[in-house]
């Protein structure tokens, strides 16, 4: 007849501690392995869904917003009369502040050759309001569009802009494809 072996308190505590420690280590190991193999996700704007509601400028936890206007140069018409640069009914097609659409003058208009102009975004000044994007889309080729800049974004668990975006244009995408750029500008750069 087998003798029932009684655990004393010390053995019980020692065994319990070993099991707890083992389970914890196993858990950490599994978590680390999962994290190492899982792809990281980041927030990004789908420019084809974006309606330029202005909330990227007003609702981002960063000030100024981590959303910036980007320019797909291969789509741009390099127009003299740029709908993204000049406000409706501008007095003259020149760089006077009264003619500019951007509330922070974040777009530089640079002469190339008659009658073509290049438009360059100054990201330091851009607040991501999307006003130029709307003008470009309405009256131009839609080469200006908004993107979340990942060097500025905190990648919050719940994006404050995504929460209020009326067109559900912001979602998490794999960090390996962190930008949704219009045109084939990025492909051209890579090639």
């Amino acid at each position: 007849m087998a003798e029932n072996k009684k655990l004393d308190r010390r053995d019980f505590i020692q065994k319990g501690a070993r099991i707890t420690l083992g389970a914890s280590l196993a858990g950490i190991g599994i978590a680390a392995a999962t994290k190492a193999s899982a792809e990281k996700y980041v927030w990004q704007i789908d420019p084809f869904k974006c309606t330029q509601c202005g909330r990227c400028a007003t609702d981002c936890v960063k000030n100024p917003s981590a959303v910036k206007c980007v320019h797909a140069y291969d789509l741009c018409g390099y127009c003299d009369l740029c709908g993204g640069y000049f406000k409706p009914g501008a007095n003259k097609l020149e760089t006077g502040a009264e003619n500019q659409l951007c509330p922070t003058a974040a777009i530089e208009r640079r002469f190339i050759e008659e009658p073509y102009f290049e438009f360059i975004i100054d990201e330091e000044l851009c607040i991501g309001c999307g006003k130029c994007v709307k003008g470009c889309g309405a009256f131009g080729n839609g080469s200006l569009h908004l993107q979340i800049r990942h060097d500025l974004c905190d990648n919050c668990n719940e994006c404050a802009i995504a929460r209020v975006c009326p067109s559900d244009a912001i979602s998490r995408i794999p960090a390996s494809q962190a930008y949704i750029i219009k045109g084939n500008f990025t492909e051209t750069q890579e090639s």
Binding site: G54, R55, L101, C129, A138, R163, V164, C165
Partner: peptide, 19 residues
């Protein structure tokens, strides 16, 4: 307050209604 339909207007609205 966060409902898209109940928020105030866009302070950066691109408005060409008058035209």
């Amino acid at each position: 307050g966060n409902n898209a339909l109940n928020r105030g207007g866009n302070p950066y609205e691109y408005n060409v209604d008058e035209y």
